[in-house]
Design a protein around this nucleic acid. Sequence first.
RNA 1: UGGGGCGUCGUCAAGCGGUAAGACACAGGACUUUGACUCCUGUAUUCGGAGGUUCGAAUCCUCCCGCCCCAGCCA
Length: 564
Amino acid sequence: MTTLESTPARDFIRTKVSEDLAANKNDGRVVTRFPPEPNGYLHIGHAKSICLNFGIARENPGGVCHLRFDDTNPAKEDVEYVDSIQEDVHWLGFDWGEHRYYASDYFPKLYDYAEQLIKAGKAYVCDLSADQAREYRGTLTEPGKESPYRNRSIDENLDLFRRMRAGEFADGSRVLRAKIDMSSPNIIMRDPTLYRIKRSSHHRTGDTWCIYPMYDFAHCLSDSIEGITHSICTLEFEINRPLYDWILDQLPVNSHAQQIEFARLNLSYTIMSKRKLLKLVEQGFVTGWNDPRMPTISGFRRRGFTPESIRNFCERIGVAKRDSMVDLALLEHTIREDLNERAPRVMAVLRPLKVVIENYPDGQSEDLEAQNHPANPEMGSRKVPFSRVIYIEQEDFMENPPKGFHRLAPGREVRLRYAYFIKCHAVVKDEISGEILELKCTYDPATRGGSAPDGRKVKATIHWVSAAHAISAEVRLYDRLFTVENPEGDKEKEFTAFLNPQSLETLTDCRLEPSLATARPEAHCQFERMGYFCVDLIDTRADRPVFNRTVTLRDTWAKIQGKN
RNA sequence: UGGGGCGUCGUCAAGCGGUAAGACACAGGACUUUGACUCCUGUAUUCGGAGGUUCGAAUCCUCCCGCCCCAGCCA
């Protein structure tokens, strides 16, 4: 359904790429990269970056986008994450082709570059402890002090660095540092650490290394090795750009990308920090990274979002440099927009209320023709069985309806979608609790299919399901994960304090029309008047379907009620 | 009180010296066998503030105010 997608807006990054192309800056090449660290699942913020990087590559002739795992910190990384990342990028609709790389594949080259830096007198081995290093670094307003180890000879540095690699020193006892400027107003430039000793088994290189390069050292050089032309990252790395450029300027590299920063995505009523998402998973606030309430790509997928809707969302939010908080309503709009086009309509009663149609013959049933998508006849039709006892939605009946309510009520007539007009003439209640147990109605045989020969109108059309034919199912109603727009915005309270206790409501007694018995996992549909749903990929069993509510339909009636 | 970024409608976001696009949200109305969809209509005399330059400023200059990022041997 690419019809929904138009040409992406000319944001400042695309403009820059075009200008570089026009100036023949990189011999006409456009090479971008999406460089996740495999320490968590991808979220909607990553989707923005993926759409940007892969999108730019796709839009420019000969453009390429690499997938590169920035796996320089084995302590936090895992193959589970590299697998999920690849699956999510593919699902989103992008392909890196041959260009899948790992920073860890460059460890030998990176090590070599480090030695070259030492030989050029631009890096040194420092024996300061982490605490001492912090003291020597100075503060935001005071310059730092030079390390006493800063002026070791090149030979000594080389010897020490080789012995670091050989495993002669304890973790944390020494680091390799760039020799730049301890009084730089940019703290990043105060002799940043390039390599640290860390005895941690790496998910790809195992125990081959006991020293690992830092982000600043590995990232720019990885870009350079791959011939990246535009290194697009988020705003918080803007301050690292001078270091990115400094490292590449010291070394005999033949490619030096331009780093361009944009504002990361913030979405209302959720969080985007991988650390915090991990906490939700580990502490059991959600069932996993792919819990339908999670803002992860796999979570949205399981919730029933389509790749098209997410790509569309990423296109509409734009790319700029100012911090922003995008309204969740925009994401909901893009998924409704997509599902409205493609989701077949079916009837499902979530909270059943029994209705006996007293003038309909007992034991009789008939099949009625129902459109799969009224606005799209090519999607065909299906038969829906009707009989004497049906279920309707509890909320579609009110014994004492307020003004404005025009569904079923005592003495009132409504249309059963694709079936008949029915009129309610009695309410059966539990004598003690007063709970409405059942409705007694009559139907008008002349209104078969839903229209009256005498031209009389009804105010409402409601959905229904034949009791004898319905299949039962579990339906999970999802709502926003947090109760406040910005769960991370409170200085006193932790974000978990704003978790929405009603983010999941599980309904176990739902009745669906029988055609749904064959719905495949991940299939999308619209339960008429209730919302868009999909068949849960994980928990659905052949004899017990589980449906997830992707998003409700717009509900102006609820809005009117809310005002009163 | 160091440095780097950013401030245009409720939320995103165009605009780059010629007189404020668009989207979402919101509010009316039409249509309707989904109170859905669709379709109309409305919604910033104003661009963080104050000065200045100019025939003309959201766009240029000056000062001020506000928000974000940086003191990991995380990325």
